[in-house]
Write a protein that binds this DNA or RNA. Structure first.
Lengths: 348, 348
DNA sequence: TATTGGCACTCGCCGGCTCTGAGTGCCAAT
DNA sequence: ATTGGCACTCAGAGCCGGCGAGTGCCAATA
């Protein structure tokens, strides 16, 4: 008994099988590989190699009398060896340039446009995660009186993210006072991150209270009220979930349902996706490689975009493990590059 | 041959069948009805009545050897004759009061809280449509400079709806100028509806241009820029779509998919739901009664909430035709009542 | 020694068959 | 008018057998 080999020919055959399977969705038999593969190998030879590949865990058989299907490990090998070069089709590139051409690199806009774009191009789920709110840099803050004890806080950061929140206040603040408070905070803190501002506010409040004039005191109180209630995360936008139902691998309603339930719990997804914000380049997580069991049959393609040296967010695609890896990776990479560029160009 | 009868007993039997079917989801046979029904009728007698009810279109048989199932018409009869009284369970009411108790009757908040509440209570799709933007009354408008030619407009109406939009401008406006423009518009137009404001702006612009000072001119231009691009509708929020997959009637993936695609085209749904904004009370549209073919197997429960005498929006539930009509109608009615009340109380 | 043609074998899928049981429609008896 | 009785219908589950794609293995080959 010899140990199974994983030589150049095996790699080539694996590549051929993965490509064919991605294309058709049908298990690939030795006959098909023999015809497709450039090297003129007979089905019997191919079978030997395939048996080895299966033993090594790159392929699996749905059942004895069927062809082979790539495993997660098989896909992994494939994406790792595929040249990361210029694999972006012309048409795709044109569409992206057009869609993002009019955009000005603001987060508010990107959160709508980018997931939709990704979803359309790939027929899968496109997603976008905005940077965490603590990392954003104050551009503008505004307090608007709603009723006696309720104030609407509108916060805009330098990247064009819009956040808002309703604050319950102890006493009634007239609008004029709120306007002054907003202006004071902007004068004092514009250009700083929320965590800096939080620190600054704490420092101010630690100073002897008597020295505060009423205005300053109110501004500080309202500001810290906003900061202390970070609120539920609305940083994630998903688009095209129904696309997943097109794919035969999700014919099972039960799987589908648990997947959609996951989509509805956005905060869980956000914390999953935030893990990848520090890695450069386009990352691919295939099937089980995602730690989450609901994503077992899915591949996550992630790319970070950068806001400045320290911070950024992520965007990408979620789809069945059987996806057009080369194209999707190229798409996600290009879009995140373009968006980072937009952000930097307008960051003045 | 006699014409089929639809007397009191038939009504009673129909009611019994509908209730039983709602409960179990299984076709109901004559034996079951005979046991359940208060009148001690034998299965054979019940069969006669059921045959009549089928002939009249209130019932249908999935196949010859199965029990009966209510048709849309059968459900219609049922909801029309069910007493609209106090059918709201204690627990439901408590949960609603608690969830809405902390709320202040602002649209921004309602758009999050209400659909989720409806979805949780019914295990179906909860939805909420904000009033059309033209009907809202200006409370606050704010222009924030993003870059040379891009301005973020934030608009808040009296009911607490927050709208925003990015505007491309011909020239660069410094922030100070934008602040003045915002203040001018608020001073001039606060308390008016957008359509009034539009008319007012047109009137102002019609006046001899020379008489404008620069400030006023800019304010008017920016304001009308905002008004003229109403933008895509984000008035609708849906929650709990995955709940529908729980119901066996949607085991078919194809149906499911076209339904979810409909959910993603929100503007289409909005225009569907806006039709019902003028009718008072809770309305129920069963199956085909919704003109839309994708909603053939679904029931839409709608209630208007009122913002003021003239305007309001709608909220409700979407679920399979087999739903707990009494409870859902009571829920939707109570929530819309409570929310209208909140709106009026805070409208000062 | 690597490759290949041949061949027996496996097994999912499909169509057809039967059996079962729930439920019906109808009729004659009450 | 109601009801017991009875023949009838039909979906669904379970079983069989044929088919065909694809495999593993082995002996023949270059």
């Amino acid at each position: 008994m010899t140990t199974p080999s994983f030589d150049a020919r095996a790699v080539e055959i694996l590549r051929s099988i993965v490509q064919h399977y991605i294309l058709t969705g049908e298990p690939v038999g030795s006959r098909a590989v023999s015809k497709l593969s450039s090297e003129g190998l007979s089905p019997a030879s191919v079978r030997n190699v395939m048996a080895d590949l299966e033993e090594l865990g790159y392929l699996a058989q749905p059942h004895t009398s069927a062809g082979r299907v790539p495993t997660d490990k098989g896909y992994r090998q494939y994406v790792d060896t595929v040249p990361p070069g210029r694999t972006l089709p012309r048409g795709d590139r044109a569409l992206i340039d057009e869609s993002l051409g009019g955009a000005g690199g603001e987060m508010t806009e990107a959160m709508e446009v980018i997931p939709r774009l990704l979803s359309r191009l790939t027929s899968q789920v496109g997603w976008f995660v905005a940077p965490p709110i603590q990392a954003t840099i104050l551009k503008h803050i505004e307090f608007i009186r709603l009723h006696e004890h309720r104030v609407l806080v509108v916060f805009v950061d330098r990247a064009g993210t819009l956040t808002h929140k309703i604050l319950e206040t102890d006493r009634d603040h007239p609008q004029a006072e709120l306007d002054r408070a907003g202006r004071y905070l902007v004068d004092q803190f514009a250009g700083q991150t929320l965590s800096d501002i939080r620190a600054g506010l704490v420092a101010l409040m630690a100073e002897e209270k008597a020295r505060f004039d009423v205005l300053l005191k109110n501004a500080v109180e309202l500001g810290s009220g906003f900061l202390n209630s970070t609120g539920p995360e609305k940083r994630l936008v998903l688009e095209g979930a129904s696309n997943l139902m097109k794919h035969p691998e999700f014919a099972d309603v039960a799987t589908m349902r648990s997947l959609f339930e996951t989509f509805e719990e956005k905060h869980r997804l956000v914390s999953l996706l935030d893990r990848y914000v520090d890695q450069p380049g386009v990352q691919v997580f295939i099937g089980r490689e995602n730690r989450d069991p609901t994503l077992d049959n899915l591949t996550l393609v992630v790319s970070k975009y950068s806001l400045d040296d320290r911070t950024g967010g992520t965007l990408g695609v979620l789809g069945p493990t059987r996806m057009e890896y080369e194209r999707v990776v190229a798409l996600v990479g290009y879009i995140s590059f373009l968006f980072s560029d937009l952000l930097h160009r307008h960051d003045g």
